[in-house]
């Protein structure tokens, strides 16, 4: 501390004050302690497990708790190491749930590292929430640049999570992310979104040329299923409406995708990477 400048010390002091808050979510910290600054905070689960995560205290009234990040470490991988949100056991018919991380209490990664690798904290299964927000942030950006760097940010505002147990852990218990759980028509809920950065048209343009005929932007959709009966967890920003080739625009999954599209961003690279040609 002796070599800290005065300003720096004040900042550190304020940060250390945050460690005194006891709350189960960023919303509680905002409501109970009137904290208005984005940044890292400590939270506690019902059983008293302490963890640190990022709080968005500014978007649409603030109080948003970061609970997970889905990061594609290798677009060429096929359910290989790093594909925690589908499977790390290869494309395996005998493992329909893959790693099962959408509906278990496993945690991994760190808040500061959430744009460099997958992240999941106890808030994912512990917090009872009403709405979700989603940020698409370019890989490897540091935490204090996330908001500005994000290519897409939106949130729901109709408290839909109340209908599905209050969090994604419970929602995906109702709608398992499992190969062969059903057909394309057995899709989970699609919820309208409010944009914080970007709009329906920018959302559309982020996905491939061919997928644009298959979805309607302006929604977040859970547990889509494609033609080959593979399940995906989240279609971010869109609602599938036709075609059922959801592996090109929905993320996460179970443990098997026919013929060979397994992975966290299942078949986003079908027509190789580039300027959105074909299905890519």
């Amino acid at each position: 501390p002796q070599n800290l400048t005065r300003t720096n010390f004040e900042h550190l002091e304020r940060l250390s004050n945050r460690s005194r808050y006891v709350a189960r979510s960023c919303k509680e910290i905002r409501d109970r302690y009137n904290e208005q600054e984005d940044g890292l905070y400590y939270l506690t689960t019902a059983n008293g497990m302490v963890y640190q995560t990022f709080c968005d205290m500014t978007t649409a009234g603030g109080g948003w708790t970061l609970v997970a990040s889905v990061h594609e470490n290798s677009i060429n991988g096929r359910c290989t190491v790093g594909d925690r949100w589908s499977s790390q056991q290869g494309n395996n018919l005998n493992l329909p749930d893959g790693d099962g991380n959408w509906s278990n209490r496993n945690t991994f990664g760190t808040a500061e590292g959430a744009t460099s690798d997958d992240f999941k904290n106890p808030g994912y299964y512990d917090i009872k929430a009403e709405d979700m927000s989603v940020w698409h942030v370019p890989n490897n950006f540091p935490l204090d640049h996330w908001n500005l760097a994000a290519i897409l940010r939106y949130h729901t505002n109709n408290r839909f999570l109340r209908l599905y147990g209050g969090n994604l852990f419970q929602l995906f218990k109702h709608y398992p992310v499992r190969y062969n759980i059903g057909s394309c028509s057995n899709r989970g809920p699609a919820v309208p979104i409010v944009y914080d950065h970007g709009d329906r048209e920018t959302t559309r343009m982020f996905y491939g040329l061919k997928p644009r005929k298959e979805f309607e932007p302006g929604f977040i959709t859970f547990r889509a299923i494609n033609n080959e009966r593979a399940a995906m967890a989240i279609c971010s920003g869109v609602k599938p409406i036709a075609g059922c080739n959801t592996e090109h625009y929905c993320i996460g999954g179970g443990g098997y995708f026919y013929p060979d599209q397994c992975g966290d961003f299942p078949s986003f690279d079908y027509d190789s990477l580039g300027m959105g040609q074909g299905w890519s």
Partner: peptide, 15 residues
């Protein structure tokens, strides 16, 4: 999907 989408992490928040 576009390069931007493929090379961006998807951060999920609750409130």
């Amino acid at each position: 999907a576009s390069k931007e989408m493929t090379e961006a992490a998807v951060l999920l928040f609750y409130r």
